[in-house]
Design a protein around this nucleic acid. Sequence first.
DNA 1: TATAGTCAGATTGTATACAAAAATCGTAGA
DNA 2: TCTACGATTTTTGTATACAATCTGACTATA
Lengths: 219, 219
Amino acid sequence: MATRTDKTLTEQLAINIADAVLSGEFVSGQRLDEQMLAQRFNVSRTPVREALRHVASSGLVEIRPRRGAAVASIDKNDLEMLFVAMGELEAACARLAALSMTPIERRRLNALHEKMADYVTGDLPEAFAESNLDFHAQIYAGAHNRALAEMTAGLRRRLAPYRRAQFRTPGRLPHSHAEHGAVVAAILAGHAAEAHAAMLHHMTLVESAFEEFSSASAA
Amino acid sequence: MATRTDKTLTEQLAINIADAVLSGEFVSGQRLDEQMLAQRFNVSRTPVREALRHVASSGLVEIRPRRGAAVASIDKNDLEMLFVAMGELEAACARLAALSMTPIERRRLNALHEKMADYVTGDLPEAFAESNLDFHAQIYAGAHNRALAEMTAGLRRRLAPYRRAQFRTPGRLPHSHAEHGAVVAAILAGHAAEAHAAMLHHMTLVESAFEEFSSASAA
DNA sequence: TATAGTCAGATTGTATACAAAAATCGTAGA
DNA sequence: TCTACGATTTTTGTATACAATCTGACTATA
């Protein structure tokens, strides 16, 4: 979804609504009244409706005909399903990246990976988390497949709220970095199957790390 | 996309427009004037706009702000990209199917595969093509991951027009069936990595079969 | 008391009207 | 003849009005 400079209210609204959902301001299951949203953003119902449908296409909200929109209520099964799907997509990106990355892209990925080693030794989870986004984004881009990259990035954005505390788990930082190392090594060597397996392994561990954590937050 | 019985004009329109694009009635690059569509379907512009945005979310049409909608023009690079992405998604589904299919699902898949053998010996490409849809659909379902299954099925639908003549290529039928056999064997045995590799192999061959064919149809 | 039916209020779906931007066409000038 | 500018026309974006459906409460009846 090439988010260019759209000045249209619909696009702005879609972003605002998605943000409100992702930030937790609109909680899971909450009904999204069109009039309420229109009033809140000082626009008419028309762009609100279009924005809601746009956000719905990413799965963040659900629209039932003649019954209105609501923030998609994700139960534990759905969440696990999405994590699994994301693991597969990330692994596919890593596989393609191993096949398609240019030498420059490979070098940049390796450089980022080495920089992140410092964040591990310095125990800087925030910096690591930020660079982690870059790390995965570089792999999406390196797959040289816009369709796949967009799907993967979209899923990651959608799951972001459930991963906030990911690197807070004690000892997770060095583990993550080691798993990244395996992915990087396979990609640099151009070993597609290994890159796939390594990324899948990494994402599976991320998922289980989440699950240990998720007894706190209900859906 | 749970297509329930929506009587809303928007939903009907979205289906009609998508069909018109997929059937080739609306050709690649053609502008889709809102008024024109509204007149054609005897509705107002409002449901047309919503339907267009819905169809756009599947990639069939492109909407540029303040410049209207047009049938997505897919060049050769885009098409190859989509085929690659679909291969990866199919492979992911096969991988998960190997891990998650129930005994009943495995038996049904095997039964279908054996039935398709008859279509090969009988040289019935139409019957094979029809069952081929089932074959892949069963694998999507067997992955037990709705998110992934929907993405894959969506991509397949979108690429369907470019695969029409797939099984017309002489000698393609037995090849396809043999590749299917490798996939089925891996899934039945629960060998995830093999299922992944076999499906990837299959889809890559499908893609190249298409490429041999595609010198005729321009984008 | 529980249940079914009906009616009022609220909310979504669709149509139309108006505003703003873009595309088109013609004309003037070099 | 070609280019550049400007007005007209067309098309999209947004607001509002109206129609259809759903929700929920109240009442009547078993």
